[in-house]
Design a protein around this nucleic acid. Structure first.
Length: 433
RNA sequence: GGCAGGUUGCCCGAGUGGCCAAAGGGAGCAGACUGUAAAUCUGCCGGCAUCGCCUACGUUGGUUCGAACCCAACACCUGCCA
C-alpha cells in the first residue's frame, strides 16, 4: 500500500476517491504530478483551504509534484452554491485577489528539488479561448441531462441558476485536461464539495483524450454539532494576518472542542502518529489540560504565520488569561501584547475619554450601545477588572505604563488601545501626573 | 413583450393605516456552571446625546394629522404565456 495514501487515510483526509486500488498503484509507480485549485473569492484563503494545502504538503513530502492552481478565470464565473447565485466580482478585483493568493500559497509548498511545485493560473489558457472552440471541443463532451443531475444544480433548479454558473464545471474540467496535456498532471484533489467538478474533469479526459486519471476529495470539517468548522463571532478564519490576527488565529484552534480536537490535530499538525495518539490519550484522561488543543494551535500557527508569531500569541494569552496582574507587566511585554492585539491609537485631549469610547475604539464591541450593554451584563473588563458603571470615564490609574489600556468582552474577546495625546507635538510618551 | 406573484432587521419569516425598531425561529453576544471546552439555564440582540431622538421594511414620489402597511412610477427576482 502506498505510504502517502495510507497516511492520508489515517489522518481522515480521504472522503472519496476514484478507483482506490488503481490510485494507490499509480502513487507507488513513481512521482505523480497532481493539482489542487483555489478560486479567488476573497483577498485571502481561509482555514477551509488549509486542509487542501496540508494534503499538498503531505503529497510533496512523499515525492509527488504539486501544481497549485489559482483560478483567475473560474473566479470570474463562480462555482454554483446550493444557497443561491453569486454576485460577480469585477475583473480588476479578481486579478488583485489572484495575485495575493498566489503569494499566500507559496509558503506551503517547496519550489526546489525534483518535486518542485509550480503555481499556475487558468486564465492563461482560457482568456484567449474562442467560444466556438470551447463549445465544440469541451461542450460536446458534457451531456446536459447529466449536468442537471448534479446535486448543486438540482438544488438550484427551483430558485434558478444562471448559464454562467451552470457552465462552471466545464471550465474546471478544462483545467484538468489542460494540466494533463501540458504538465502530465494525473491527479486532482479538493474538498468534498468539489467532488462533482473534479470527477467531471476525470470524465472529460477519458472522453476527449482517452486518458485515465485519478481524483481524491477531502471531507468537510465539522464541529461536534455537525455545523461547519471555521467560523468565529467575527466571521471566517483567514490565513492573512491582516484579516485574522495571529493571536485570534491561535485562539481559534486553542478553543477546539474536546470531541473534535484529535480529528483537527490529524489534519493540521504534521506530528507523527505516535505523538498524536499520545495527545489523544491525554485529552481523554485530563481534558482540562487541553494538551491537544495547545499542540494544535501551536503547530498550525507556526506553519501559517511563523514560530515567532506563535510564541507571541502564546505569551499574549498567558498574560491575558493567566493570573498575572497586567499592571505588573514590563513595558516591552505589554507593548508586544498591545501590538499582537492590533491596538489602534486613540487620540485624547486633556480629559480622558469615557470607558464606552475606549471599549468601542479597541474593537471588542461594535458600538457604544453595545458597550453599555456589555457593561450592564457584567461582561466588560478594563485591564482584567470588571466594569460596573457605563458612565465611567477612564482615569489615570487605568493607564498601563501611562498609555495602554487592555479591554475585554466576555472571557475571550480581548482588545487594547494606545492613548495618544493629541495636543502635544513632540511628546510621544505622556507621563501621568 | 404580456399576465401573475414577490422584494421586511445577519438569515428565515410574520406583519394590510396609529398599540411597529417591527411577532416567531435560527445564528450571534453576555451572565451562571466550567477547563479561555461541550451541554444546560437566564438575559441581550439598529444607532445615538438612552424616560427622548435618529435611521430602517427594494428605489423614488404621492395620499394622510399619521404608512412597512394605501396609490403611482421605476428597479430587481420567480413563475406562466409569447
Amino acid at each position: 500500500m502506498s505510504a502517502v495514501f495510507d497516511e492520508l487515510t489515517w489522518r481522515g483526509l480521504v472522503a472519496s476517491s476514484t478507483d482506490e486500488a488503481a490510485l494507490i498503484e499509480h502513487l507507488e509507480a513513481g512521482p505523480v504530478t497532481f493539482y489542487v485549485g483555489f478560486d479567488p473569492t476573497a483577498p485571502s484563503l481561509h482555514m477551509g483551504n488549509l486542509v487542501q494545502l496540508m494534503v499538498a504538503r503531505a503529497m510533496q513530502r512523499a515525492g509527488h509534484r504539486p501544481l497549485i492552481l489559482v483560478g483567475g478565470s473560474t473566479g470570474l464565473i463562480g462555482d454554483p452554491k446550493a444557497t443561491g447565485e453569486r454576485v460577480l466580482n469585477s475583473k480588476e478585483t479578481v486579478a488583485g485577489w489572484v495575485e495575493r493568493i498566489q503569494q499566500q500559497v507559496a509558503k506551503f509548498v517547496d519550489f526546489t528539488g525534483p518535486a518542485a511545485a509550480q503555481v499556475v493560473n487558468n486564465l492563461d489558457w482560457t482568456e484567449s479561448l474562442s467560444v466556438l472552440d470551447f463549445l465544440r471541443d469541451i461542450g460536446k463532451h458534457f451531456p446536459v441531462n447529466r449536468m442537471l443531475a448534479r446535486e448543486v444544480v438540482k438544488a438550484r433548479l427551483e430558485d434558478g441558476i444562471s448559464y454562467t454558473e451552470f457552465s462552471y464545471v466545464l471550465l474546471q474540467s478544462l483545467d484538468f485536461l489542460e494540466l494533463n496535456r501540458s504538465y502530465g498532471c494525473t491527479l486532482q484533489f479538493g474538498g468534498s464539495d468539489q467532488w462533482g467538478n473534479i470527477t467531471a474533469g476525470v470524465e472529460l479526459l477519458r472522453r476527449s483524450d482517452g486518458t485515465h486519471v485519478h481524483a481524491l476529495a477531502t471531507p468537510l470539517l465539522t464541529k461536534a454539532d455537525g455545523t461547519k468548522f471555521g467560523k468565529t463571532e467575527s466571521g471566517t478564519v483567514w490565513l492573512d494576518p491582516e484579516m485574522t490576527s495571529p493571536y485570534a488565529f491561535h485562539q481559534f484552534f486553542l478553543n477546539a472542542e474536546d470531541a473534535k480536537v484529535v480529528e483537527y490535530l490529524k489534519v493540521f499538525s504534521e506530528r507523527p502518529r505516535d505523538e498524536i495518539d499520545e495527545l489523544a490519550r491525554q485529552t481523554v484522561e485530563a481534558p482540562h489540560r487541553r494538551a491537544a488543543q495547545r499542540a494544535l494551535a501551536d503547530d498550525i500557527t507556526a506553519l501559517v504565520h511563523s514560530p515567532a508569531e506563535r510564541d507571541a500569541a502564546v505569551a499574549a494569552a498567558a498574560a491575558l488569561f493567566g493570573r498575572s496582574d497586567l499592571a505588573e507587566l514590563a513595558e516591552p511585554t505589554l507593548a508586544s501584547l498591545v501590538h499582537e492585539l492590533q491596538a489602534p491609537d486613540l487620540q485624547v485631549g486633556a480629559e480622558l475619554p469615557p470607558v464606552v469610547d475606549v471599549l468601542e475604539a479597541s474593537g471588542v464591541v461594535a458600538s457604544k450601545s453595545a458597550a453599555r450593554r456589555a457593561i450592564a451584563e457584567g461582561g466588560a473588563y478594563l485591564n482584567n477588572v470588571r466594569l460596573a458603571d457605563p458612565e465611567a470615564r477612564l482615569g489615570d490609574d487605568d493607564l498601563l505604563h501611562g498609555r495602554y489600556v487592555i479591554t475585554r468582552r466576555g472571557k475571550r474577546t480581548v482588545g487594547a488601545v494606545a492613548l495618544v495625546r493629541a495636543t502635544r507635538g513632540e511628546d510621544d510618551h505622556w507621563e501621568p501626573s
